[in-house]
Every structure is written in C-alpha cells, then in structure tokens.
C-alpha cells in the first residue's frame, strides 16, 4: 500500500507534515534533514525541488530556492541524494515543485525514478487539473504516485467535488488566499471555509497548509483537518545557528509538545 494511504489509515488526527527545500541551507543537508524530521516524530515530509521562478511562493521559499540552486541542486542531483533514502526512512515522502523542471527531465522518466526511490506522491502547483488527467494521470498511477491537489477558499464546490473524485492521497487545503509563508491565525473567514469543505462529505482526508508556523497555528488547523503542513517557518528555522539535528528537534518539539 502507498505509505500516504497507510498513514491516514493509522493516524486519525494531528498529522504533522513538514516542507523543506532540498539542498538548503547546504547542498548535502537533504538526507540528514529527512532523517532528523522522522526521528523527531514528523509524519510526512514534502521535499521541495527548487525552481528559478516560484510564483506561488513567498520570500522565504523564494530565497531558499535561490540558494539551493546556487548550491548546485537539480532534479538529477536530488535523485542521487535520495537513492538510498528508504534504507533509513519509512515515513511517506512527497516531492513538491514546479512543472517545468519535470518536463525537461521527462515526465515518464521522472515518475519511474520516483517509484524506484520510494516517493509516494507529488505536489505540482502549476500542473492544471485537465492536463494532469489527459497527460499525467496514467504515468503517475503506473508508478504508485499520488498527485496531491490544492484547494483554496475560492475553489468552487463543483471543482472541489471534481478534485476529490480524482484525488487518492489527501487534499491540500490552502489556508487562505496567499502565496506561501503568509502570517495567519484562524480567522472567521477561514473557519467558515474549513467548515464548508468539511461538510461536503469528501472521500479524501484534508491537510491544511500555508501560514502554519508554530504550535498555536498547528493546533488550530488540526481542529479543521486531519493535520497540517509547515513550510516557510521550518525553512526559516534552518537558517539559525546550531547543528542540523538541534535545529530540527528544537523546532519540531516546540510544535509537537506545546500544541
């Protein structure tokens, strides 16, 4: 069974997913970061593949992407780094990135490589639903990869139902109308959006992401979904001083213990 489905079957609440940019702050931090996240109790990891023009991202992930590319990160390099990841890591792993580098690598070759390594899903913000269905779905499925779709407060009900019908892992509920890294607390507007989505009886579980940055926002988001995703706040924390292990455990403990 795909590790994402297994996770959602076994853990019913407070699922913690963390995003980080591969190759940041240092090129070789990718694997140690994943290992440290697992060790500290993170349930799911989203590995960011940097892109030169990340239009859906705010300043923190723009910056980490830029540094990572300057460090020499590429899809080829990332696959090399992850080659033996399944010998030490068994939580679900998702690759997140923009469509163009994947197109240049070759969609089919990319998916086969993901399968070989043990990647469970992909988040590609600029891959449109219709193109996914027509050109990508078959290859993704053949390689046991879930495509994770995003929804926002503006997503219509008809479209929510459509996304639910072609999703198979979970649905990524973007917390507000924003790029990544925006500050947020759960406003009334967001509350009614989460409640509206939850009342639709969708078959896929939801995770809330964008603007989740600490124990409080994580705890609040978990009231409205199976769990939440932390991105920019974690990336930012990795810039501080201390060893990689110290930084990861300091950040994650503050969330898991206090929320």
């Amino acid at each position: 069974m795909n590790r994402i489905n297994k996770l959602f079957q076994e853990k019913k609440e407070r699922i913690l997913s963390v995003y980080f940019t591969a190759g940041y702050p240092n090129l070789d931090d990718t694997v140690p970061t994943i290992q440290a996240l697992q060790k500290n109790g993170v349930d799911l990891v989203e590995i960011g593949m940097p892109f030169s023009d990340p239009v859906a991202d705010g300043p923190v992930i723009q910056y980490s992407s830029l540094v990572s590319l300057q460090n020499g990160m590429s899809i080829r390099k990332l696959f090399e780094q992850l080659k033996d990841i399944r010998q030490t890591v068994d939580i679900p792993l998702i690759l997140m990135g923009y469509i163009n580098p994947i197109l240049q690598y070759g969609v089919e070759a990319f998916c086969r490589k993901c399968n070989e390594i043990g990647i469970d899903g992909l988040i590609i913000p600029d891959l449109p639903l219709n193109v996914y269905e027509e050109e990508f779905k078959a290859v993704f499925e053949a390689n046991n990869l879930h495509n994770i779709f995003l929804i926002t407060p503006q997503t219509s009900e008809g479209r929510l139902q459509l996304i639910d019908s072609i999703s198979s892992g979970f649905i990524y509920m973007v917390s507000g109308n924003s790029t990544t890294g925006a500050k947020s607390s759960v406003s009334d507007f967001q509350k009614s959006y989460f409640e509206r989505v939850n009342s639709l009886g969708l078959k896929n579980p939801r995770m809330i992401g964008f603007g989740i940055s600490n124990a409080e926002t994580f705890g609040n988001a978990c009231k409205y979904a199976r769990g939440a995703i932390i991105g920019s706040a974690f990336v930012k924390a990795m810039e501080g001083s201390g060893t990689l292990e110290q930084k990861v455990s300091g950040f994650i403990n503050a969330i898991v213990i206090q929320s």
């Binding site: 469509i99 600029d126 193109v131 503006q154 973007v174 790029t179």
Partner: peptide, 11 residues
C-alpha cells in the same frame, strides 16, 4: 499555450 496556473489563480 494553455493555462499552467496554480489553483489560487483558477477562479
């Protein structure tokens, strides 16, 4: 051509 847009721009 096409519209390779993130979900946030769809509406």
């Amino acid at each position: 051509g096409g519209a390779y847009i993130p979900e946030m721009m769809v509406p």
